[in-house]
């Protein structure tokens, strides 16, 4: 095959990526900088700092932060518990597949699951009510921002299991043996050897979880049909009504805001990953 033919072979994929990844991404980020007539404006991006939009960003950060921290800790505990089980055994493969399903394909179904569990007529709600405890004593919070916490944790913990498990598996038994032959205890092993080695990977996974919750849309959209309490839902109403705060192209500005956050998060993630990679050879 000549080089020229080979270059020709790359063009279909390049064209496809250009049309359906590059152009939409650039459009999504840049439309916020133009008004309805197509003239350059900073109005929309400036509107990101209006108290109303800032509040939705804060809510998004809050939900992402809380679920990322809890998800990372619980997920890391599960990874620890799986350590020493056979990697190709039935327990591992079941946990792996279940984690992938819940982490990546939950979406709408998670909303249904939690309505059935802690909805007004949910199993747990009714059960607790019979026991004399009304979880909705102060009003129904499932369809508000706090209601996102439990469904989000339901995909955050599995995502942590998937992303953090390789790091834990990378711990070499020789390190533990060296530690014990030099007189170290299990405590010193975890605090002075495994802990520092795992820290960048743990923090990286934490960032990934944060990014995951921050950009997640389906669960929130299925649960909260009215209003725009978090940024993805704000984009929804901007797309549907065309005007949020009376501005056209506000969806573009919101997308731009989200991308800035995502790029910062993913940059931090890749930095931490490259620190982790040193120990995974």
């Amino acid at each position: 095959m000549t080089k020229k033919l080979a270059v020709l072979g790359l063009t279909p994929f390049a064209l496809y990526v250009l049309l359906f990844l590059a152009i939409p991404s650039v459009l999504a980020i840049t439309t916020g900088f133009f008004d309805k007539a197509g003239a350059f404006t900073l109005d929309n991006v400036g509107a990101l700092f209006s108290p109303q939009i800032l509040q939705t960003f804060l809510s998004s950060f809050w939900v992402s932060g809380v679920t990322a921290v809890i998800g990372a800790v619980v997920g890391a505990l599960v990874c620890y518990a799986l350590l020493g089980t056979r990697p190709d055994g039935p327990l591992r493969s079941t946990v792996n597949s279940a984690s992938s399903v819940l982490a990546q394909f939950g979406g709408v179904m998670l909303a249904f699951a939690f309505i059935a569990t802690i909805g007004v007529q949910g199993v747990i709600t009714v059960w607790l009510k019979d026991a004399g405890f009304d979880i909705y004593g102060d009003g129904v919070w499932l369809y508000q921002v706090p209601g996102l916490l439990l469904p989000y944790l339901y995909f955050q913990v599995p995502l942590m299991v998937i992303t953090f498990m390789p790091a834990l598996e990378g711990l070499k038994p020789q390190w533990a043996e060296a530690n014990s032959s030099l007189g170290g205890s299990r405590f010193t092993y975890w605090v002075r050897i495994a802990g520092p080695i795992l820290l960048p990977s743990f923090l990286g996974s934490l960032l990934l979880l944060f990014a995951n919750a921050f950009s997640s849309y389906a669960t929130a959209a299925a649960l909260i049909s009215q209003g725009s309490q978090i940024v993805p839902l704000q984009i929804r109403s901007a797309l549907i009504s065309e005007t949020v705060l009376g501005r056209a192209n506000m969806a573009g500005a919101l997308a731009f805001g989200m991308i800035v956050v995502m790029v910062v998060l993913m940059f931090g993630y890749s930095l931490l990953q490259s620190r982790t990679a040193r120990w995974q050879r």
């Binding site: 049309l19 359906f20 990844l21 152009i23 939409p24 991404s25 650039v26 459009l27 999504a28 980020i29 439309t31 950009s215 997640s216 849309y217 993805p232 984009i235 797309l239 969806a251 573009g252 919101l254 997308a255 989200m258 991308i259 995502m262 790029v263 993913m266």
Partner: peptide
């Protein structure tokens, strides 16, 4: 890095 909810903003005109 470009999640679906962001990409869709650019997919509408495309």
């Amino acid at each position: 890095t470009v999640p679906a909810i962001v990409l869709v903003v650019g997919l509408v005109p495309v």
